[in-house]
């Protein structure tokens, strides 16, 4: 079942569109913001609510980079692996992060604290290398300053 809050937020977005299906991407984002990820159960609830098939929903959900169809940790790290960050030392930052976390891209730390993912260009190429942690931007990364950047995420 979708929660009353989820339904309220989805309905608010749905008003902007002439068709019911059009709210799907907003709805996936909203459900994920409440539950951390989009589980099969969540997908089924949403399909029922929007009068669409689960297959249709999954086709859309799995297309978008920032909809998670697998559980994620309490915090999600998105490290930019696009060109300007690559030129400015992305590889060293990735190695240092992987060593510190004990996991590589696509994995979650054993304590469930962090999920580590790559992301396309974050649009802060003049401050490369960069990453997002829970949507918050960290720039001018070096292998030495990442530990400090992660500290606040308990």
């Amino acid at each position: 079942m979708l929660s009353a809050e989820e339904i309220h937020e989805i309905e608010a977005e749905a008003q902007h569109y002439p068709t019911r299906e059009a709210v799907l991407i907003d709805a996936l984002r909203i459900v994920q913001s409440h539950r951390g990820w989009v589980s099969d159960d969540a997908l089924r609830d949403l399909a029922e609510f929007l009068h669409m098939t689960e297959a249709d929903l999954d086709g859309v959900a799995s297309f978008y980079n920032l909809i998670y169809r697998k559980p994620v940790g309490r915090h999600v790290i998105h490290l930019c692996d696009s060109i300007s960050c690559w030129i400015e030392g992305y590889a060293g930052v990735r190695r240092a992060l992987a060593a510190r976390l004990g996991v590589d891209f696509g994995e979650t730390t054993k304590d469930g604290r962090f999920t580590f993912l790559p992301i396309v260009c974050l649009g802060c190429c003049d401050r490369a290398p960069a990453m997002l942690v829970d949507g918050e931007l960290h720039v001018h990364l070096t292998p030495d300053n990442i530990a400090g950047a992660l500290e606040k995420y308990a």
Binding site: Y17, A22, L24, R29, V60, Y64
Partner: peptide
Amino acid sequence: AGRYMCGEESGLLNALEGK
């Protein structure tokens, strides 16, 4: 919800239609 293809004009319109 994030995908480079959304920057392509007609891809963007599909995304805005929930596809």
